[in-house]
């Protein structure tokens, strides 16, 4: 196990972080929409939201990635591996994040909304100023976990041809006959990245905890 090999792993881990990060952010916005659909008065929107969640939460990410990678070219859309990977991970994490947010909105105490109502604050301002900030605070630990889950799940995107951290370790192990040190190094890198994410999550949680009953 040389420094050169480790450096190759580090470079590949940048792709892991970039793809996961992009997917989490895109997934969050998608999740907000799906969640709004699930909480909506509109029956069609509620059904669509639930269907989305049950499909992307009910099938393995691996299958979703393979479907996207093979389906898109069939309908004439040629996508690079990285794009297919981000689409797959975004859709999958959106389903989980939508459920997390739905739980968060459900946990905002009804009395806080009644207080807003009695102060004459309208539905939109109540959502913007009171429901959303409280829901995000309530779900921060779960959202941090989801970020970590997606980072680990990104090891699956090698099936669509993306050379990320796990795939790089596999390739190097095959060519150098040093599987143990390479997988150990890859594991260590995952651990360090996730430790950083977890501590950032903890810091943010502590900061918002100040404003919490």
């Amino acid at each position: 196990m040389t420094w050169e090999l480790f450096e190759l792993l580090l470079v590949a881990s940048i792709k892991t972080v970039a793809l996961s990060g992009l997917s989490i952010v895109l997934g969050f916005f998608l999740a907000a929409g799906v969640c709004a659909g699930m909480l909506s008065q509109n029956v069609a929107a509620r059904r669509a939201g639930r269907l989305f969640v049950s499909f992307f939460r009910g099938t393995p990410l691996l299958v979703q990635l393979l479907l996207i990678y093979h389906l898109l070219p069939r309908v004439g859309i040629d996508v690079p591996s990285e794009v297919a990977a981000v689409i797959g991970m975004s859709l999958c994490t959106a389903a989980y994040q939508a459920e997390i947010l739905r739980g968060g909105f459900g946990s905002v105490p009804k009395g806080l909304l009644e207080a807003a109502d009695m102060c004459g604050i309208g539905a939109f301002d109540t959502f913007r100023r009171i429901r959303l900030p409280i829901a995000v605070r309530l779900t921060l630990p779960a959202l941090t976990s989801e970020l970590i889950m997606i980072l680990k799940a990104s090891s699956l995107v090698s099936v669509v041809g993306v050379i990320e951290l796990t795939r790089m370790a596999q390739d190097l192990a095959a060519s150098t006959f040093l599987p143990l040190p390479l997988y150990a190094a890859a594991g260590l890198i995952y651990l360090v990245i996730n430790a950083v994410i977890a501590s950032i999550g903890a810091i943010v949680e502590r900061r918002v905890a100040r404003g919490h009953a």
């Binding site: 100023r129 918002v208 009953a213």
Partner: peptide, 20 residues
């Protein structure tokens, strides 16, 4: 009480004055 937990005392009292 139903104070909004993410706002200070001042924020709670001034919120509706601003938004409403």
């Amino acid at each position: 009480f139903n104070l909004w937990p993410h706002m200070t005392a001042l924020g709670n009292v001034s919120e509706a004055l601003v938004t409403v």
